[in-house]
Structure formats: structure tokens, C-alpha cells
Design a protein around this nucleic acid. Structure first.
Lengths: 217, 217
DNA sequence: TTGCGCATCAAACGTATGTTTTAAACATTC
DNA sequence: GAATGTTTAAAACATACGTTTGATGCGCAA
């Protein structure tokens, strides 16, 4: 599948519709008619609908994982560096990378975040498997740093706190559009993901650093 | 739609399949064959698939909102009580109510939580509308108490923090089953929602009570 | 110009969906 | 025992889906 005008148009239309409606609720006919290409083009270029879903994610996640690893390298942070990053350092680095994903249109970032939320919640087995095997390295690095900076937590409690954290991010971002509309009480609300992230980081930080349940007694 | 054996069998099968696969991914034929009833029974008793989905939620949410409001009454907490509850009081009360929903089978609570997660993420417009109009009272009460106990937050920051909080809960609960399996690294892991909630409350509490972004400077 | 490979197109394929219909059995109540 | 409301059964409905096909057009190298 080489780079072509049609391929991009399909991906553009697909990512918007998937983010709006979900994967099962978006038909190939919706996608191709929005993209103004022939119905058969999807199966011709991608092979199947599932492969298209994966391609939509790859277009985001390739640059994103590169951004994250490059950020780590610039700071000189890795498994055995002399000056380990704080938890806030890590959260800032990862969220900032999120905000800098290159996209085609204005709402690109919130679309991507909504997609990630859907990927986790919607039980698309093939997607989950694909993401895990393709981007496990980046994720493991994050886990490693969290572990370094929260040594007082038990493995189990840390595990759950990381889940809570991912939950906040995934869920919030997946509904950032309707939520912003509720807040501003107007339909044409301009979403500013950066502002939300500024609220998000202190919240997550406090949660991750809260006194351990076990150490209480 | 009166109470009947068939109705319950349909609801039982539906809630399990919906939680497993999602709404769109579950067909009426899957449900009726699992419930061992005739295909036409769903449309006879409920009218439509969407109405069935709503009925599945009602069976949980009716008792739940009653549990919550009853808990508030027992403590004497309402809009103008003399001794206002702390944030921890509120979180404990609501999470404890969650854990006490009456269900038919062992995994009832985690099934319900998974369903709530799906309801929020999967963009089933009709469901969202139904839930908002049906259970807005209970939700507004929660919002009110959070506001009372976090007076230092701006309306906007409090709004987002509540979203983060709901995100942690919804997301974690919606994937509590696979997550527990990952943690225990065994397929027959016994899920204990109560333990997870014990980890969850301090995390949420710390996040909600974190120093405000604006007060920093 | 001829031939080849790729892209596009309309059309059809087979399957699955939610819903409706008809009929016959069953239970319960007055 | 007639009447009413439930349940089953089997079939068909119309529609939508993902996918495949075969013809057509296009650009480019031989």
C-alpha cells in the first residue's frame, strides 16, 4: 500500500468518523462517501476494515512514540541514568508529547485522544493485540519511570494507580468534545486540549503520590 | 411489560453479553439463544433493542440511586444540613453504594461497572439521554457535595477534576476483569471489586484535593 | 503503438442484522 | 369454559453490512 491521494483521504475520513461514532458504528460506506472515493478502495488499499482501523492508529502512534523517545533522549533519561526524572517530569514529558502529535486539522489531538479512549474501552480484540505488540516498548519505559519514582508503593497498588491514571486520561480525552460543550454551554465551543492537560497533570500527580493505603496503619 | 420469567432471562443474558462485547456487537439472536427464549420475545416484551439496553440499565440504576439517597438520608446529609460531609465521606458513601448493588450472580458488580463504562464511552446517544434524564437528581447531589467541600477550586477546575474522577472509575471498572487477569497473570483470577475500591478512594481523594493550578502563582 | 500494471468504478455477492407477521400452544383469571 | 395475556415456533421482511468481481480507464516503459 503505497502513499497516495486516495489512501490519505480514506484515513482522514475514517479517523473523524471513528472518533465520532466508534468502530462498529461506522460503516465503510460512510467512510468512502465522506472521503469521496469508491467503496472498493478501502479493501483494495488496506485489505479489510480491521486493517484500516489499525492504519488509522499507526498514523498517530508512529510519530507519537518517536516524540516520546526523542524527548527522553534529549533529557538523557533512560534505564540507568545518573539523575532520574521526577514523577512530574515524566507526566509532563508524556502529556506534552501527546499535545505535539502532528495532525492534519485543528482538532487532530482531541480526535486522537478520543480514538485511544475507544481503543481501550471498545473491545476490539484485534486492535488491542496490535497496539500491544507494536508499541509495548514506549509503554514499558513509562511504567519503569513511574516505578522508580514511587518506590514506597506496593507493586499491586502501583499497578492500580497507573490504571486509574490511564483511565482519567483516556476517558477525559475520549469525551473532551462533548464535555467542553457542556462546560461552555454552546455548541461551537473551541476545545483547547492544552488547558485541560494543565488541569490534568496536578490531579494525576497528587493521585499517584498519595499516601499508600497500606502505610496508613 | 410485566414481570415474568422470560423477561428476566432476557435481561440476564443481555447484561452479560453487552458487558462482554458491547452493544452494537451483541445481536438479539445471541441474546435470545443464550437466554433460551424465542427471538421475537425481545421485541414483544421490550419493543426494540434500544429499549432493552435501557431496561438492562434500569435494573441496576433503580436500586443504586435508592441506595445512595438512602445512605445520604441516614447520615442526615442534604443541601442544608448543619454538619456537612467531608469529601472522603462522600466518596466512601457513593463507592460503597456501588459495591452493594443487588445482583443475581457473583460478578454482578463488575458487570454493572463495565456497563457503565461502556455507556459513557460508546456513543449510544439514546442511552446517554435516557440516563441523564432519569438519574440526574442523584448525580446533581454528588456534584453539590463536591462543590461544598472544595470551595477553593474554580468552577472550571472543579468541573474537570470531577471528569477525571469519573474517568478513573468508569475506565477502571470497565476493564477490571482483563486488568485483574494481567495482574494475577492467571485466567481464573477472582475479581474483588472491593479491594480495588480501597485503592481507588485515596487516589481520587488526593487528586480532587490537590492544590489548585491557579493558586500556584 | 502496443502491452502491462495499477487505480477506479458500478454492480453484485453472501451474510447478518432488527423487526414483523402468522399461527398455534399454554397459562391464568373471571 | 370463554377470554386474555404469554410464549413459542417458523418464516419472511427490508435493510445494511464487509467483501469480491469484472470491466474500464489511465500512465508509462518497451
Amino acid at each position: 500500500m503505497a502513499h497516495s491521494e486516495t489512501v490519505d483521504r480514506i484515513l482522514d475520513a475514517a479517523e473523524i468518523l471513528f472518533a465520532e461514532k466508534g468502530f462498529s458504528e461506522t460503516s465503510l460506506r460512510m467512510i468512502t462517501s465522506k472521503a469521496k472515493v469508491n467503496l472498493a478502495a478501502v479493501n483494495y488499499h488496506f485489505g479489510s476494515k480491521n486493517a484500516l482501523i489499525q492504519a488509522v492508529f499507526s498514523r498517530f502512534l508512529g510519530p507519537l512514540s518517536r516524540l516520546m523517545e526523542q524527548g527522553l533522549k534529549e533529557k538523557g533519561w533512560d534505564e540507568d541514568c545518573d539523575k532520574a526524572p521526577t514523577l512530574e517530569d515524566i507526566l509532563r514529558l508524556y502529556t506534552r508529547s501527546l499535545l505535539r502529535i502532528p495532525t492534519n486539522h485543528d482538532n487532530g489531538v482531541s480526535i486522537f485522544m478520543r480514538l485511544m479512549g475507544l481503543a481501550y474501552t471498545q473491545s476490539q480484540g484485534h486492535l488491542r493485540r496490535y497496539l500491544e505488540q507494536e508499541y509495548s516498548r514506549t509503554f514499558r519505559l513509562f511504567m519503569y519511570f513511574v516505578k522508580q519514582s514511587t518506590p514506597e508503593l506496593s507493586t499491586e497498588e502501583r499497578f492500580w494507580r497507573i490504571q486509574f491514571t490511564m483511565g482519567s486520561v483516556a476517558f477525559t480525552m475520549s469525551s473532551i468534545q462533548p464535555l467542553t460543550e457542556i462546560l461552555e454551554d454552546s455548541a461551537d465551543a473551541k476545545v483547547d486540549p492544552e488547558a485541560v492537560v494543565n488541569y490534568l497533570v496536578p490531579y494525576l500527580l497528587a493521585g499517584l503520590q498519595a499516601a499508600s493505603v497500606n502505610s496508613k496503619m
